[in-house]
């Protein structure tokens, strides 16, 4: 019973967290300083997500063999390649590195 309650309550909390900003703020213009910060959230959160995906909780999921793949992705991005080409090349390099090391 506790499990079902936990799942149900978590679903409601999750809904509320996602809905809060759009439902309460709508498309009302934000004050200029707040607007500037909101516009800067993307690089901040993306960098945070990248590091969490790479390192994991307590850095326990860090695997240096992902770094060559990420480097290839960065280089291909600089060369103007599409997103999917960058990712596929990175995955292939990672598989190759893991096969060798």
């Amino acid at each position: 019973m506790t499990l079902w309650v936990a799942i149900g309550v978590l679903a409601v909390i999750n809904f509320a967290i996602k809905a809060a900003g759009p439902a309460l703020l709508g498309d009302r213009p934000l004050p200029p300083r707040v607007s500037l910060v909101v516009q800067s959230l993307a690089p901040a959160l993306l960098a945070g997500l990248l590091i969490v995906a790479l390192l994991g909780q307590g850095w326990r999921e860090f695997d240096w063999r992902l770094l060559p793949g990420l480097t290839v992705i960065g280089v291909l991005w600089l060369l103007g390649r599409s997103q999917i080409v960058c990712i596929v090349a990175g995955v292939l390099v990672t598989v190759a590195v893991r096969a060798l090391v």
């Binding site: 996602k18 809905a19 900003g21 759009p22 703020l25 709508g26 498309d27 934000l30 959160l45």
Partner: peptide
Amino acid sequence: PMGIAVAG
């Protein structure tokens, strides 16, 4: 914050 960012 992601929700606040997409609100508009």
